[in-house]
């Protein structure tokens, strides 16, 4: 009995790391650019399809293809922020929302036209291999994907902590006016942040292919998931996003196992509501001054 539980939790943790990576991208965009990226999940699904195509056509493993996909997503994000989205920074929430809903609709339906509405299994060669660790049976794919997600997260933490640009972006998030006063090019930093945010989603989406089949309809669900995680973790807290990702991953796995897989996201939403009411700054967020 205990071993079953352990299996469920481990599986949740591994999935949660991917969720965390995806949410990290949103956390950066939401926390720094203050933009409500309502197309976040849709971008993740685009990345899933990109990884899927690269694998089907040339046999590129998603664990590798996530790198070029993330790179392309960075460029796309940078360009998007520079052109379309910059005009919406500081505009009312609902206007940003409509713009990004527009983007999301275009993305989802573009996928729908190209790939059709049905799930397409990627069938990775090691999809059914697993490690046996004592009583645990752990899928290899999940381990690989989780390790890759952790690596990306570590790189990201390093970037924000140790590079000039990363520090500057954090300064923007803390104090926008101050950042502008000391001569930081806020617009460029915003574009870089949006690029990084999308690169995270790109990487997370590519890795997601290893555990879920791409379907266009997943987009809105992932968007909600990402927002849920960011808010539970605490706006502006990168560690919080990761922790909340794990929490959601585990709670979904446990709920899916205990009750019914179709009801698993009810727990995420209940958790979101509880956090909004009881601890609006999120689990690891700072209390607003």
């Amino acid at each position: 009995m205990l071993s079953i539980w352990l299996n469920v939790v481990v599986q949740g943790v591994l999935t949660g790391l991917l969720y965390g990576l995806m949410a990290l991208g949103l956390s950066a965009i939401f926390g720094v650019v203050r933009l409500v990226n309502f197309a976040h999940g849709e971008f993740a699904v685009v990345a899933m399809y990109a990884a899927f195509v690269l694998f089907r056509a040339w046999g590129v493993d998603p664990l590798w293809s996530m790198l070029p996909i993330a790179a392309v997503f960075f460029v796309v994000g940078f360009a998007l922020q520079r052109t379309l989205i910059n005009a919406f920074v500081g505009r009312p929430d609902y206007q940003q929302f409509i713009l990004l809903v527009g983007v999301a609709i275009v993305l989802v339906n573009g996928l729908l036209i190209v790939f059709g509405p049905d799930a397409q299994p990627a069938n990775l060669p090691y999809a059914f291999d697993s490690y046996l660790v004592g009583p645990l049976i752990i899928d290899k794919v999940r381990v690989y994907a989780a390790v890759a997600a952790l690596a990306v997260c570590a790189a990201l933490f390093g970037f924000f902590r140790f590079t000039r640009t990363g520090t500057a972006i954090r300064a923007c998030a803390d104090n926008l006016v101050g950042a502008a006063v000391v001569g930081l090019d806020v617009r460029r930093l915003y574009a870089v942040t949006f690029g990084i945010g999308l690169a995270c989603v790109g990487a997370a989406g590519a890795l997601m292919v290893t555990i879920a089949d791409p379907v266009p309809g997943l987009g809105p669900a992932y968007t909600l998931l990402a927002f849920t995680i960011v808010i539970i973790g605490g706006l502006g807290s990168m560690a919080g996003a990761l922790v909340a990702g794990l929490l959601i991953g585990v709670s979904e796995a446990v709920a899916g196992f205990l009750i019914a897989p179709s009801m698993k996201s009810m727990f995420s939403f209940a958790l979101l509501i509880a956090v909004l009411v009881l601890r609006p700054q999120g689990l690891l967020g700072k209390k607003p001054a």
């Binding site: 713009l99 809903v101 527009g102 983007v103 999301a104 609709i105 275009v106 339906n109 729908l112 036209i113």
Partner: peptide, 9 residues
């Protein structure tokens, strides 16, 4: 839907 999304934007 794509056209719709573009109109919205």
């Amino acid at each position: 839907a794509i056209f719709f999304g573009l109109v919205l934007m």
